[in-house]
Amino acid sequence: MARSMLIISRQSPWAGPSAREALDIVLAGGAFELPLGLLFLDDGVFQLVGSQRAASVEQKDLTANLQALPLFGVDALFAARRSLAERNLDESSLALSVEVLDDAGLSALINRYDHVITI
């Protein structure tokens, strides 16, 4: 049985390569059928905002990439309620279907996985 892994992505799409690196880990792991989860925490929840225009800063469209996660077999997608609220983001209008968790839910989530990587 493959060891499960939770990747915690806590940087915005525009704060350097972190958000992309987190996604690359998840896509690679998903392609190998590893049991993976992806949690958007802190500025990471900015990855979930729709209608971002990567081309205007000559970058690749991370939000478009995120839509492919279910096809890569990664369905365990989570976001932190506190992080969304702090940034005044509406849970119901995110660009990706995620399960929104409060602090206690996040503690429990982290403790469900064999490994955790925070990026």
């Binding site: 998903g30 392609a31 059928e33 839509q67 492919a68 077999g73």
Partner: peptide, 17 residues
């Protein structure tokens, strides 16, 4: 749609879809 090239499994899934 996704701005990336699929690995084998996502390609199969997408084709089936």
């Amino acid at each position: 749609e996704f701005q990336l090239s699929p690995a084998t499994r996502p390609l199969i899934k997408y084709t089936a879809l």
